[in-house]
């Protein structure tokens, strides 16, 4: 019951944010710049998240990278990615990419069985290339707005950089996630926490170098992260139906664009 209430509260918050977006309209900003009317609370949340990262997530991630050998880490990543395939498939259907969705479903079946609960990406070996889509991207594909414009930029507690579009997407992904529904029905909800924890460490271990780089080379870390997040999401939305870069051949079209407007 309380979970439903929280979800409802979140939804209301989102609607309020979207409404305020429409009411205030666009402030003056340079083209390609993220719109951030809630910058003060966002910076506050960013600082809290950063503190948690510094004292908890980052040390755990560094220890994980040092203690666990690469093949095992790859296995963990594969298993987590496999649990994300149903959401990718649903999003691909919603984006009007049925053949990509079929490949994703085939990948999920092959990897969950032959790939031993997704630990091994057998599907990739037999020519079923991976892709990754979510509902935030789907809204971006549906929307008439340019993908850089996802509504007001938001820094979510623990989850980090987002915007109105992607926050709604996260909520839908959470509600539609078969893994969440099944673990709740079977009364093994702790598996959901295990997965969330593992996912946090896996994602962090893959962004360690990039985030360190941004932090070191930027003057205003908050703004640099906001810009990078907005651009990355926009690129992912533009390349709907594209393969993950580890699977796409270098000669494949559709990756040729660059952000600097002139």
């Amino acid at each position: 019951m309380s979970r439903r209430l929280t979800a409802f509260a979140r939804m209301t918050l989102m609607s309020a944010l979207v409404a305020s977006t429409l009411a205030t309209g666009c402030a003056t900003r340079e083209p390609g710049e993220a719109w951030d009317p809630l910058e003060v609370p966002n910076r506050f949340m960013f600082a809290i998240n950063r503190t948690i990262d510094t004292f908890l997530l980052r040390p755990v991630t560094v220890a994980y990278r040092e203690a666990v050998p690469q093949p095992v880490r790859n296995g963990v990543h594969n298993a987590l990615a496999n649990l994300g395939e149903p959401i990718t498939a649903l999003s691909e259907i919603a984006q009007g990419e049925p053949s990509r969705a079929a490949t994703t479903i085939a990948r999920f079946i092959v990897n969950s069985t032959v790939g031993f609960l997704g630990l091994f990406d057998v599907a990739k070996e037999i020519g079923l290339a991976p892709s990754k889509e979510d509902f935030g991207q789907t809204i971006g594909v549906w929307a008439k707005a340019p993908p850089e414009d996802g509504g007001p930029y938001l820094v979510l507690p623990l989850l980090g950089p987002s915007n109105a579009r992607d926050a709604v997407g996260l909520l839908v992904d959470y509600l539609a996630d078969p893994f969440r529904i099944v673990t709740r029905e079977l009364d093994v909800e702790y598996l959901m926490y295990v997965r969330t924890g593992a996912h946090a460490v896996d994602v962090r271990s893959r962004t360690l170098q990039a985030l360190d780089d941004i932090e070191k080379s930027s003057l205003d870390y908050y703004t640099a992260v906001r810009s990078a997040y907005t651009q990355k999401r926009a690129a992912d939305i533009r390349h709907k139906g594209a393969l993950l870069s580890s699977a796409a051949p270098l000669s494949s079209p559709g990756r040729a664009e660059i952000g600097l407007a002139r």
């Binding site: 340079e30 990078a228 651009q231 990355k232 926009a234 690129a235 952000g259 600097l260 407007a261």
Partner: peptide, 19 residues
Amino acid sequence: DISVEGVSMGLTRRSDFSA
């Protein structure tokens, strides 16, 4: 300009410097 995984270094710098 150089763009890494869809993120333009020039554009990121411009936001950063502007702020």
